[in-house]
Amino acid sequence: MRKLMNILSSAVILTALGSCENTIDTIKVSGEDEIMMNALMNVNDDVHIVYLSHGQGDDFRPYTTKGELQCYVNGQLAATAKAKSFYDLYFCKAYVFNADFKAGDKVKLTIEEGLSAEVTVPQSPEILDVDTSYFENSSNIHSSVIFLRTRLQDVPHEENYYSFNVNAEVYKGWNLIDTTRNRRVTLFTDNEPLLKEYSSGNDDDKTFFDDYVKNKYHLFTDKSFADNSYVLNVGIYPYDCLWGYYYYKENYTHGYDKGGASVSVIVSSISPETYRYIKAIESSDFWHFEPVIFPQNVSGGLGFVSVANSAVWKIRFPDRMIPKDFYGY
């Protein structure tokens, strides 16, 4: 009986192991070399940058338009962009222009090859005030937090999508010596349900079901406070983003200079498509059962163009002595 059972069970196991992977279909996508136009602009930007690429398969290269890249605002030509290699990115040729946008404007980008994209500038929210407080962690100074309780007024009578960011800057005299503009500031969001991150401890502590998408671009909607004001309770780590300002070591051998710092709270209003686009960027960091759909709004080609409108609240910190030559200045 045991022998029979062993034989039978072996047969079942072997048939199960015989299950395999096969290719159902093969799609060759080497056909067309498509042009892609991408731009994530902001009303408050000093310059607006549009990126052009082209490619097929996974072979992407910067693209130089045969003609001009033009920007129309409300049907009127507002600017013609110039290629600026300083702003080039991997795969992308940067085209830069200056133009003023305001809420409600219809902004259209076109290139001679027939690509175009038109978007409407959203209304920015209003930051009513920002209340700050400092919590010092004496056992670990680097975990000290400056809380920025930002009271925000929602844009009324419509569904709104927002992103939250902070820009920190350190000055020596009138000179800007450090800025977080080109990097993402780590925020303390545990007390803010709309932006709460779900990781715990380090990656080793994560279990299979932990949420790997941390909302790293700090997106939120107005579903819970539509048409009203809301207080976002977010913090920054001053020893991370204002390192030079907060570091004070006695008897610093190089001496001290008078310096200052500022923190800008930025709440940007974005379109629903931009919200989905940024969510797709985030989710591409981890595995899905199915591919993620990236919104595309460029006609005649591929790509995504958007304009955000931000409310900014700048907080200037009192001047103090900061280490001389700390940043090599």
Binding site: N38, L40, D58, F60, L89, C92, N182, I281, F294
Partner: peptide, 13 residues
């Protein structure tokens, strides 16, 4: 059906 270039809010591609 293919791949595309995207720009992130961090200003990278």
């Amino acid at each position: 059906t293919r791949q595309i270039v995207a720009i992130t809010p961090d200003g990278t591609s």
